[in-house]
Nucleic acid binder design. Structure first.
Lengths: 236, 236
DNA sequence: GCAAAAGTGTTGTTGATACACCCATGT
DNA sequence: ACATGGGTGTATCAACAACACTTTTGC
C-alpha cells in the first residue's frame, strides 16, 4: 500500500446492495424495491444503501439494510459477498462504489409486498433479465451475476436446501434445482444421488401427502456444506 | 438504494490491493513489497494503493498500481477481482476499504527483486501462511483467499496455462498443478486428459530436450477457458 | 547399452443416465 | 380400480486410476 501522506486521498461514497433470491410461484425470484426519488425515480432497484457510519462493518451494513428495507431477518439468511461494482458514472450523482451481497431465502411467509417494508416486490429473474426490462443503475448486471453465482453453487454445495423450508421433501429440493437451472432432472436418479451424499439431509421420520400418490419422506438440512461428488448441470 | 439527502454519507478511503501469484523455484510464490513508512513500517505487504482520483475505474486502478509498484505489465496478465475487505480497524490510520485483485503470472523474467520497482520480493506462499510469519494489515488472510481461488480455478478452468511461458511442455503444465495443489499427478493420465480437452493446448510441432529422455512436445495456450470435464483434486 | 523422460494401451472401478418396476396413497 | 407421485433395481456408458509397455533421447 502506498502512502496517504503523498497526496490527497479521494474519498468515495460506499454503498452496500443486496440480491435476495428466493423461489416463488415456481420460478426464481429476486427482491426489488421501487425507488421513491431521483435518480431512477419509480424504477426498480436492488435494496441497499450507504454505509451508516465510518465505523460500520460491511457485513453488518448488509444485514442492517436487508432488515431496514425488506423487513427480513438477515440472521436467518445465508448472506455472502458477491462482488464490488465501481465503474465511474454508475451513479449519476457522484462516484459510488457498491459492495454487493447475495442471499438465498426459503419461501417467504409473504409479508413482503406492501407489508411493513416500504415497497418491496418479488420479481422473476427471467423477467428482470429480459432486454426490455429497465432496472435502475447497473443493477441488472448485478442480478445476472447473482443468479449465475446461485446456479454455480448448486453444483458443488448444499445451497439448494437454503431455498427450502426447515422441513422439506426430496421433490421440494429437486424443484429448487429444476427452477434455478431451468432444466428437468430425473426424480429417481436425483433421489439416489442426494441420499448418497453423507450429511446433506437428515430424515425426520415423518411423511407428508400433498398430492395423490405415495407420501414423501420429510428431511431437515444436515451439516454437510459441500457436495461430493458434485451435481452436474447438463453441458450448455 | 436509500437517499443520500437523508443524512451525511460517510466517506471512506478506497484502496486496491493485488495478489500476484507466480511459480518460482518449484513453489507457488506471491509478490510482496516491503513498507517504507508506518504503519507496519518494514513489514511485508501486498502491492496496492489508494484510488488516484474520484473518477478512476477500479480495474484501471488495479493495473496502474501493479505497474507502478512492481514494474509488471498488467495488460499481459490476467487480473480478476477477488473480494473486498472492509473490517473497521483493518487500517489503524482511518477506515480503509480495499478491493482486492488476483493475478496469475508466468515465471517472471527476474527483474523483480531490487529491480526498477521499489522493493518487490517474491515469497513462497507456504512460508507466508505459516503462523509465525508477520504480514501487514489483514493481508495474510487476503493471500490465503487468493491461493484458495487459484487452487479452485485450476479444477474447472484452463488457468494453469497462465502460469506457463508462451510455449511450454506437458510436464511444465503438470508441474503447475502439482505445485499449486501440493499433490502428485500421474503424468500419463494427465497427458491423456489434457490432450482430450478441445482447445486447451495447441501443439507447435516443435520439441525440446531439457533432460535426458525423450524430448517433449511444445504447446501454446488454446482458446478454451473452461475445462470439461473438470480436473479434480484428490478429496481432502 | 542403460537410465530417464515422453507418450500409448489396457483393465478394473466408480459415477451418471435411462428406464423398468414396485410401493403407498387420494379419489 | 386407477391415476399419481415416491422410491428401488439394474443395464449401459463415460470418465478415471493404476500400471504395463513402447518410444526417443542423453550419457
Amino acid at each position: 500500500m502506498p502512502e496517504p501522506e503523498e497526496w490527497t486521498i479521494p474519498e468515495v461514497a460506499l454503498a452496500v446492495d443486496l440480491a435476495v433470491l428466493t423461489i416463488h410461484d415456481g420460478s426464481l425470484q429476486i427482491m426489488l424495491i421501487r425507488r421513491g426519488i431521483p435518480p431512477y425515480e419509480g424504477m426498480l432497484a436492488l435494496p441497499g444503501g450507504f454505509l451508516a457510519s465510518t465505523s460500520e462493518d460491511l457485513d453488518r451494513a448488509a444485514t442492517r439494510e436487508l432488515s431496514e428495507e425488506t423487513g427480513l431477518d438477515a440472521n436467518a439468511l445465508h448472506l455472502e459477498q458477491l462482488r464490488t461494482y465501481g465503474a465511474p458514472g454508475r451513479d449519476p450523482r457522484q462516484r459510488v462504489i457498491t459492495v454487493c451481497y447475495v442471499a438465498f431465502s426459503p419461501q417467504l411467509p409473504a409479508p413482503i409486498a406492501g407489508g411493513d417494508a416500504r415497497d418491496a416486490v418479488l420479481m422473476p429473474v427471467e423477467k428482470v433479465l429480459r432486454p426490455r426490462t429497465q432496472i435502475a443503475f447497473d443493477h441488472k448486471k448485478i442480478i445476472a451475476d447473482a443468479v449465475e453465482r446461485a446456479r454455480a453453487k448448486l453444483e458443488y454445495t448444499t445451497l439448494a436446501a437454503a431455498f427450502c423450508a426447515p422441513e422439506f421433501t426430496m421433490t421440494d429440493l429437486r424443484e429448487v434445482y429444476e427452477i434455478v437451472w431451468g432444466e428437468q432432472l430425473d426424480p429417481r436418479n436425483f433421489h439416489r444421488k442426494i441420499t448418497g451424499v453423507e450429511g446433506f439431509l437428515i430424515p425426520t421420520g415423518e411423511r407428508v401427502s400433498r398430492q395423490p400418490g405415495r407420501p414423501a419422506a420429510l428431511y431437515r438440512r444436515g451439516p454437510a456444506t459441500v457436495l461430493h461428488p458434485a451435481m452436474l448441470r447438463g453441458r450448455s
